[in-house]
Structure formats: structure tokens, C-alpha cells
Design a protein around this nucleic acid. Structure first.
Lengths: 267, 267
DNA sequence: CGGGCGTTTGAAGGATGTCAATGATAGTGG
DNA sequence: CCACTATCATTGACATCCTTCAAACGCCCG
């Protein structure tokens, strides 16, 4: 694990790497102050558990750096990744005492952790924040529905293609925010093959085969096991079978969230 | 279609068949009055479209009778049921101009329809209602995650078993509310085989085979194509591979929603 | 240099989809 | 009232995608 990422983490909100996309950006100074009072920065090394399954839901958090995997286990031990949480996104179980899923570090994590009860109290005083939480929940739901289709209607090759497109999209979103233009068109998977397989509902062998098939077709170029240059974006989209708006939902770019109109009512 | 179900529908809230489990039950007289002003009863015959995909999200609704199927289509025409909405539950796309999914009548429907903008306005004036909408969204999300696991980690036999258990549970919930004790342990599928297949991510042939396999094992008794008596509940649960709380989530029985504590803050 | 982990590659087997034909049921019109 | 037709469900034979099992390879780190 790259220890450098977890060292010397700045805990000032003004230096927050995702401040423009978090909940904090949707409230006023007062709400912001209240939130900062109950939050603190926490790091979790890759593979670590943030919140176990059926554990006390004592806190919620925003991801500052890294990716959280949300998993669900069956009685016999089979485990399945049901969702991923990317930087700027919020996760945790609100208004319930116990978690229904396990939250784990898919990579080295930097989190902005908030006490759950404290957070719920802030929500009560700030309807605009609760509104934002609700909207984010709707987006999560749309993404989950999209994934339902992905996991059943799509073949494994289509799923792998979709995954490459989503990671590419997410990477470009991050670069946009950081105002950097280099290394575009490169899809970066923070997940190990094992996690990819679990997330896509298949096996590491099948993924390996499909990735190499796409490379043989000239659609992508394999840089290393987790970096892929997308050579033919159109073709990759065509193979994935998805529409642009499908991918937007999966990449966390809400297609037409007309939240501003209603939001203004709260100010 | 059974036309009788859609005839002479009573439009009085006091006669609402699901009044104890709807949103309406979570607000005060004032909110209730506001809601009733913007709502009206609407019937849709089985197979009809309630809201098309990428249509104007002009209204939202509560299901009074019947089941709504939420579907998503791919470019090439493949269609997938991503969710079902049962009586007492709410559906629709809030705070967005266009739907991302298609909502269709899986059976004859009686809906309590509300103008979307009007409903959003009521939510603004009644935080306790928006809070309830949010909680229901969280439950929907948990159910969608549960389904992600179901559709990938589980075999088709396990999925069929799960479906039978869920329909049994939902039926018993309905009977509870209606204070009737007859025909317990009978699983009733309102879905056609085609819809079942789409919902479970498999084919009608596979479902047919598994249902008959379960009957041959003495786990269920096939009454007709849509009615199944569950003879060995323990065994069926064991075959499904799920835990009791997994099934609770899928059946719409939230395991431990401690909403009362926070809700009291609003009153 | 050696061990362990992650990935790749190959071969074989199985679960499930596909194709096809028959049977059951309900609604329709004569 | 009864054939007639359409839709749905069942059943069988076959095809195939994908998993499983197995082994080799590469790479990082001790």
C-alpha cells in the first residue's frame, strides 16, 4: 500500500479535496460550522473495514480519497460487492441502529467521518441538508437499478466494457475538478481483479479473458493490470450496449437533476 | 383482466385500503388535507403503462391495489425488471423532469396519483413528509442492494426460492392488515412467468423447471401456475440461502427502522 | 534468491439459455 | 354452447457461455 497517501493528511475544510462536490457545499455557513464540529478526518488502509455488516451504525462519512466497497455476504460465505463509493460521495446507514452491509476500503482511504446521531441532529435543523441527502439517495437508487440491469441483461463482456467506461469517466471527472489535462483516455481501475469480479458478478478469469480480447480487437491497450488506454471509445460504448445516459448514471453524473429550483425554496 | 377490481373504486381517503402504511399516515391533519387536494384515484389495466421511460415526470403515486413493475430497456430492446412496487408503497421520480425508468402495470392497478410539482411543494412545507420519503428511499436502496446480490451470487434455483418466499411474506403482510387468517402459507405470484423471469434475471423455462423441482422435492405444492402452497418453509429458506433479515428487506419489512425517535423531533 | 500474491492461460465440465414442440387456459366470435 | 385462436406454461433436446479446476507466469518485497 502506498503509505504516502495516508501521511500528513490535512484536516482543514478549506483544503478539502472534494469540497465542491460534498454535502458541505449545499449548506450555509452555520450548517457548515455545525458539520465541521462533529466531523474528523480518518484514514483506513486498503483492505481495512470501515463498518462491518450488522455492526452498530455509529458514524457516517464522506470519501475524500480512495474508494469504499459496499459488500453483502450470504450465509455460506459468498460475498458480493453491491456498490462502490467514490471521492466526494457520502455513505453510511442513517436513521437505523445497525448496518445492513459491510463497508470496506477497496483502496487506501481518507474519510471525513461524522458521528451519526450528531449528523442526524444537524439534518433536523437544516432541511436543505436533509434534502440533499435525499437527492443523493435517489441517485444511488437509480445507480443500483442501472446495475440490476447490468448484472442480468448484459453479458460478461458487456459488463467489463461498461466497467472500463465507468472508470474512465470517473477518472476524467476527478481530473476536471483538479484542472489537469494529462493522461486522458486512460481507464484506471482502483479495484483488484478479485474486486472487479465480485462487482461485475463474474470471475477473475473471465475478466482477464475479456480484457485481453478487447486489447486484441484494438479497442483498448493494456498498460498494466490496472491501467487501460481506451483507443476506440465509440466501439467500446457499442460493445457495452449502453446509452450515454446509462453511463452517466453509473459514473455518478446525474443526467438532469433539477434540484436548484426546489433548493432555492430553502434558502 | 378482472374488470371487477377496477370498477366502482371508492375515492374517499377514509376507505383507503392502505391508509395505515402510506405516506399519509406520517403527517398531520393539515398535511393530509394538502395531499388529498392534489391527489386522485386512477386505475390502470394490467399491461398498461403508468409512466414511460424518459417521459415527463409529471406525477408520482402510491399503489392502492396491484403491483407496478419498474423496467429499464437497453438499446437493442432487451428489457429488465429492476424493481416492483407493492400496495402501500410510493413510486415516481421526484425532483427531476424526466423519468429514468418505465413504470408499468404488472397487474390491474388502483393508484393514488399526485401531481409531482404539487407534491414537491407539500414536501417543502412538511419536513416530516420529506423525511418519510427519504426513509422509504433508503429502504428501496437496501432492497436494490439485496437484489444485486440475489442476481449475481445466487443460482437460479435460489432466486426462484427467494421469490416464492417473498411473495408469501408479502401476502401474509397484506392479510395481516386485513385481519384475515385464511389461506396462509400460500405463495401468490401476481407476475406472469415472463415477468418473473425478467425480475429474476432468467428465463421462463428455467423457472418452470425449478418450480417443478421444488414440488418434486415436497417443498411446495403447485396449486396452479400462480399459486403455490409452501409445505416446508424451513427447507425453502435453506435452499434460498438467505437469512431472515435478507428476506425482510426484500419483502419490504424494514428490519430495525428507528425512525420514531427522530420523527418525534418534527411533531 | 525465494516465497507469496495476483494475473494469465488452458482444458473440461456444468448450469443455464436457446430452440422447438406440445399442452393448458381463457377469451372471442359464430 | 362450442369451436377457434391467442397467450401462457410445460417439457425435451441441444448449444454455449461461463465457471471451475489446474498450472504457469510475472512481480513485488522480504
Amino acid at each position: 500500500m502506498s503509505a504516502t497517501l495516508l501521511e500528513n493528511v490535512n484536516t482543514l475544510c478549506s483544503d478539502c479535496p472534494v469540497k465542491s462536490t460534498t454535502l458541505c457545499a449545499t449548506t450555509n455557513i452555520l450548517g457548515h460550522t455545525e458539520l465541521s464540529k462533529i466531523s474528523h478526518v480518518k484514514t483506513v488502509p486498503s483492505g481495512g473495514t470501515v463498518l462491518g455488516d450488522d455492526a452498530e451504525a455509529s458514524f457516517v462519512a464522506t470519501v475524500l480519497r480512495g474508494v469504499v466497497r459496499v459488500t453483502k455476504s450470504m450465509r455460506d460465505g459468498r460475498e458480493q460487492i453491491v456498490g462502490l463509493v467514490y471521492p466526494g460521495e457520502f455513505f453510511g446507514r442513517l436513521f437505523a441502529d445497525r448496518t445492513s452491509f459491510s463497508y470496506e476500503a477497496a483502496s487506501d482511504l481518507v474519510l471525513c467521518v461524522m458521528d451519526r446521531h450528531g449528523f442526524e441532529a444537524v439534518l433536523q435543523r437544516h432541511p436543505e441538508l436533509e434534502h440533499e441527502i435525499m437527492l443523493r439517495g435517489f441517485n444511488d437508487l437509480a445507480r443500483a437499478y442501472e446495475r440490476s440491469m447490468l448484472l442480468t441483461a448484459q453479458s460478461t463482456l458487456e459488463r467489463v466494457s461498461t466497467y472500463l467506461l465507468v472508470t474512465l469517466d470517473r477518472r476524467e471527472q476527478l481530473l476536471e475538478h483538479m484542472s489537469v489535462e494529462l493522461h486522458k483516455r486512460v481507464s484506471v481501475s482502483v479495484l483488484t481483479r478479485r474486486d472487479m469480479a465480485s462487482y461485475l458478478g463474474t470471475t477473475i478469469e473471465t475478466i482477464s479473458r475479456h480484457v485481453h480480447y478487447l486489447a486484441a480487437q484494438g479497442v483498448i491497450r493494456i498498460i498494466d493490470a490496472s491501467h487501460f488506454e481506451v483507443l476506440n471509445h465509440i466501439r467500446l460504448m457499442s460493445i457495452s450496449g449502453l446509452t450515454g445516459s446509462d453511463l452517466a448514471v453509473l459514473s455518478g453524473r446525474p443526467p438532469s437533476s433539477t434540484t436548484s429550483a426546489i433548493n432555492s425554496g430553502y434558502k
